[in-house]
Design a binder for these strands. Structure first.
Lengths: 141, 141
DNA sequence: CTACATCCTCTAGCGACTAGAGGAGCAAGA
DNA sequence: TCTTGCTCCTCTAGTCGCTAGAGGATGTAG
């Protein structure tokens, strides 16, 4: 386990692109790492873990501001985890709502595509349904 | 059915905000409407229908560039509707993929939230799972 | 020694809006 | 008529989370 990692190394290992890592540093999500004589950033395992944490949280759709809070909580493990729990629950609700809304869209798109008679646009259901919301089978939106 | 609608009227009737309507005009999605003596935009039913079309398409998650194509198709109904069909199908696939990925996230978030013992952060599952992707129950991402 | 990869900083762009400044027009009540 | 207050106008800049590119320095392999 080597401990002097270039930005390219941590990029490869974490799956976060190099410019994105520099961006995270810029917005204060990652601390400024030390530099070599040649002015290049170098990281240790701790830096890599922090980046992996961020990446995973982003994959789960947490916003940067939420991640900022979660990182602060992680840095102080003596605190009660109610805040972390609340953030995760809020995200869960968001995801559930998004799924429900996408299911409605899916149903509507399926009707559009199925009913399209592959003829002229004049009688195309796709265009027709878009033009007249009242023709939707669903009123979810 | 009155035929001289202010931008505020069409905003109310279509559900699209006033600045957004001006933005759509700016990017060429809506044609420049005529103006009153006092330099105010006024719209007719045709303009309102076009805006409703755009709104519905946006609600279905179509990108502006796709809507541009759909509007062009709508303006020329003699064309075959294969293009419109292809756009809708592509969107359907996107939606299906997005749902699948969100379901995976939902499952992972549920595990995190359920397993949180509401104790100290030191043993909080939320933080722990975020810190170590290997602890995920799912490998969808 | 020469390629070539990787790194650096900096600025600008993406999509689809949204917010705000600073001002003009218009309708209704006193 | 005046005034209040709402709507409208244009313009610029900001949002989020990156991503792309310019222009240059540094490091590494053959």
């Amino acid at each position: 386990m080597k401990s002097d990692l270039t930005i390219g190394d941590v990029a490869r290992e974490s799956g976060v692109k190099v410019p994105t890592i520099r961006y995270y540093e810029q917005i204060g999500l990652l601390p400024e790492p030390p530099r070599t004589d040649g002015n290049r950033r170098f990281y240790d395992q701790k830096g890599l873990r922090r980046l992996a944490f961020i990446r995973h949280a982003r994959e789960l759709g947490f916003e940067v501001s939420a991640i900022r809070t979660l990182l602060a909580l992680q840095d102080d493990p003596a605190q009660p985890c109610a805040t972390a729990d609340a953030i995760a629950k809020a995200r869960l609700i968001e995801v559930e709502q998004r799924i429900a809304s996408l299911m409605a869209l899916k149903a509507e798109l399926e009707v559009m595509v199925e009913e399209c008679r592959h003829g002229r646009l004049a009688e195309c259901r796709v265009i027709e349904v878009l033009a007249d919301h009242g023709k939707c089978m669903h009123d979810h939106h």
